[in-house]
């Protein structure tokens, strides 16, 4: 029993010595922590401003008070009765459609590229990488002409196609890395046990690659959800436009209904944050993996 307490004391002593931050913080710690708070403030400030303004009554918009005297949800209820809800629905269609399309197209390709050394494999990955360079901003004319020719202006499906196309490269790339990291032997073992290749794929590989698949899907969903430029170019009628374009057309108005705008912004942001929080680590590790040995 004495040895036990002695040991406990020893470990406590070790723990204390290991403690990196002494009772009185050094100047360095204070400066570091203070700068961390300043950085954090700069990055969170727009959020705070967005939420507060969306709750501020019209009459108090011009005041310099940090917090409004009264909070009102009228901007949100006005939003529900306005057409913006329809634009939100369009955004959901586009994001969901693009995500499904990317899933169907990118997964088989990534699986094959990860599992087989086929002729043209490097070329295929090269093409994928080059497409990753491409941004809609410098291709708008071409995109517009294409959908003009085939009658895809002002449609949801054209936006689904474009969003899927621009996000496929990342999906194929990250999925190839994930499939490649799953030992082929696992699949072979399952096949030895009598399942078919498809069965092995479904019962062994897919569950193991699930984090990668989810990452690729959420990434596509977020990118399509946030997309603005192509939608601005390809759509003209307000009830065919996604939420981002609808928000932008608010800005062009003579007198801007800021609260409604910010209420719409809050709604456009919430799903993205939730999804993003889920995958951020995967995106980062996907990028840094292998680059440092």
């Amino acid at each position: 029993m004495t040895t036990a307490t002695l040991k406990a004391q020893q470990t406590r002593g070790v723990a204390q010595r290991r403690k990196r931050y002494p009772e009185r913080p050094t100047w360095k710690t204070v400066v570091l922590t203070a700068s961390a708070y300043i950085v954090a403030l700069i990055f969170i400030f727009p959020y705070i401003d967005m939420v507060i303004t969306s709750l501020r009554p019209q009459a108090e918009l011009g005041t310099s008070a940090v917090l409004p005297k009264h909070f009102t949800f009228s901007a949100y209820s006005q939003l529900l009765s306005s057409g913006l809800l329809h634009n939100l629905l369009i955004t959901v269609y586009i994001a969901a459609g693009a995500t499904i399309l990317v899933l169907v197209v990118a997964m088989p390709a990534a699986y094959y590229a990860a599992r087989y050394k086929f002729r043209g494999r490097i070329l295929f990955l090269l093409i994928v990488l080059i497409t990753q360079m491409m941004q809609p901003a410098s291709m708008l004319v071409g995109i517009y002409r294409q959908y003009f020719t085939i009658g895809g202006l002002d449609t949801v499906w054209s936006l689904i196609l474009v969003n899927a196309g621009f996000n496929m490269a990342f999906a194929v790339w990250i999925l190839t890395a994930y499939f490649g990291s799953i030992p082929r032997e696992l699949e072979e073992a399952a096949m030895v046990e009598g399942t078919s290749r498809l069965g092995a794929l479904r019962r062994v590989t897919l569950p193991l690659a699930a984090p990668g698949v989810v990452t690729a899907l959420i990434f596509t969903f977020i990118a399509a959800w946030n997309e603005f430029l192509v939608a601005l170019t390809l759509t003209t009628t307000p009830d065919k436009q996604p939420l981002t374009v609808a928000i932008n057309s608010f800005l062009g108005a003579y007198s801007i209904p800021w609260q409604n705008l910010f209420a719409a912004s809050v709604i456009a942001t919430i799903p993205v944050i939730v999804l993003f929080a889920l995958i951020e680590r995967k995106v980062v590790s996907g990028l840094t993996a292998g680059s440092i040995k």
Binding site: A36, Y47, D49, N226, N248, F262, V272, A277
Partner: peptide, 24 residues
Amino acid sequence: ALTAVLIFAWAMPQLVSLTIWNWM
């Protein structure tokens, strides 16, 4: 906490952050 805040800023749709900065 700082990481969380950065993720918030990263996730914000470009058009939304633009709207807010435009206003600020």
